[in-house]
Amino acid sequence: MTRQRFIFLTLAPATLVLVTLALVSTGGALWFSVMNRALRSPDSEFVGAYNYLRLLRDKRFFNALEISAIWEVVTVAGTLIVAVLLAVLVHETVKRALWRNLICFAFLAPVLLPRVAAAFIWRFLYSPSLGLANWFAGLFGIGPIEFLADPKIALLSVAVVDIWQWGLFFTVILVKLLETLPQDPIEAAMLDNARTWEIHAFVTLPMLRGPIISLALVKAVESLRSFDLIFVMTGGGPGTATETLDLYAYQSGINLGGRISYASAMSILLLVVTTVAFTFIWRAGKKWSR
């Protein structure tokens, strides 16, 4: 068998599944987006770019776009900051392998939870009357705080759950990466009068720049898929304070509006925006990690 045929034969099954699942549904969404299909009537007709043009006049769409952007920035940055700080803390304070492994195991638990389960756990924690979070706040004489009902902090409260799941997971990865670093440059830095935080800020973390950028990209892609978490915790509310693009598409297309074509147009636009954005982020990431 020639090399070319081998490559073709091994790639074919996966490509076939990908084409069937991704391209057919994308093609379907594209087709729906130029029709005026809705759930309340069986008929539909071709309307061209009408749905797209309407999107550009839809304030709720731009609100969702803004919420999505904030969600991306907050969860990616939050996850990395938490992971870096915790990883350095664990690396510096827990020296025994047994304790370190136990902590890593505990930190892995949240990400193993299904999103919906995590969301329910935190809804109870956030509850104004029964929740642990408000009990703590009460100890300091604050509250009760409406974590999920206050539009100012609802998005942040949901982001905390996402960061709780992924920040701790990335902590484990970073702890393991810190362990693999060569000791000599770190010892050289100690002899160069660097304090512990300076060793990490100027030596170890820059040495891990490549892996950290990769983690950021993984998290950025993952953050786009937070529909289940937000849906269970707030359903996009209060009002539209936590309504990301995928939530708005769901609300207008399936839940209440039933305007499938309009939602499809939104999905296509989301696809285009994220593809373009990630192409640039990917290129920049590759440049930085060099």
Partner: peptide
């Protein structure tokens, strides 16, 4: 180590990459 007034050269050079 930084307070001892010593400087060290390592076998692996140990430069900050």
């Amino acid at each position: 180590p930084g307070a001892r007034g010593v400087a060290m050269v390592f076998q692996s050079y140990a430069l900050y990459p």
